[in-house]
Amino acid sequence: MLSFLGKRAVASAISLIGLVILVFFLSRLTGDPTNLYLPVDASLESRERFREINGLNDPLIVQFFRYAGDLIRFDFGMSVRRGEPALDAVLRAFQWTLWLALITMTLVTVAAIVVGSLAAFRVGGIFDRIATFFSLIGASAPDFWIAIVAIVVFSVSLGWVPTSGTGTVWHWILPVSVLFIRPFGLILQVVRGSMISTLSSAYVKTARAKGVRNRPIIFVHALRNAMLPVITVIGDQAAGLLNGAVIVETIFGFPGVGKLMIDSILQRDFTVVLAAIFVTAVAIFLMNILIDIFYAVLDPRIRY
C-alpha cells in the first residue's frame, strides 16, 4: 500500500510538472506578456521597463526555470491586480470552493445512494419510476438555467434566501442546491444500475437463503459491491466541482476559485490563473489517490 502511494505520488508529480510546462508555454503563446499585463495605450518605455523588471528579456527557457524555481518555493509571484501574492488569493478562494464541493458531494452521495438503492430494490415500482424520472431531469437540466430560475423564484419572488454573496447559512442554500441537482441525477442512475446487478448476484441469493432481512441485504451485501463504479463517478463529479463551479459561482457571486479564475482571466491577472490551475490540479491528484484508497478499502481483492 505504502509503495503504491509512493508510486502514485511520483506519477502525480510527473503529471504536475508536465502541466506546469504546458501552462507556462501556452500562456506565452498567447502573445507578448506586456500586451496582456499593461494597458493598451502603454508607452514603449513603460513596456520596456516592465520587461526589465519581470525578466521578460531573458531567453524563454531561462524564464521557465526561474518560474519553476519559484514554484518549488511555492512562490507564484504577485498578483498584478490585487497587490498580494497570487497563491494567497487562490488559497483563500479555494477554501470556499472546497467547502462548497465537500458539502454538495456529501449530500449528493448520501442521497443518491439511499434513493438509488431503494429504487433498485423494486425495479419498475412506483418509487423507482419517480426517482428515475426526476434523476433524468436533474442530470440533463442546464445548471445556469436552474440557477437563474432559482434566484428568480426563491430570492426575488419569495424572498426566502439571499440572491448572492456569503455570510450566513442562508447564502449557501441556493448554490449547494443548484450544484446538487446534476451530480445527484447522474450518480443516482449509476447507483441504481450497479445495485440492480449486485442485487441479482449469486451472493445476494445466498443471503436470502440464510434468512437475512431486506435492509442488510441492500445496505450490507449489495451496496458495498455496487460502490466501485459509483466511486469512480463520484470522483469525476467532485473533480468538476473542485475545478470551480465557474457558472454557479459567478451567478451567485460566490468567492470560490471558479469565480476567481474567471475574474483573473478577464483582468489578465495571469499569475493568479497559473496559481489557481496549479492548486486545483494538486487537489484533484490528491483526490484520485484518495479514490484508489477507497477502492482498496471497499474491495479486499484490490491490493496495490
Partner: peptide, 16 residues
C-alpha cells in the same frame, strides 16, 4: 431449511 449452491465463489460475498 438451508441451501448451498453450485459455484461457491460467486455465492460468497467477495467483500466480507
Amino acid at each position: 431449511i438451508a441451501m448451498i449452491f453450485q459455484d461457491p465463489l460467486s455465492h460468497l460475498n467477495p467483500v466480507y
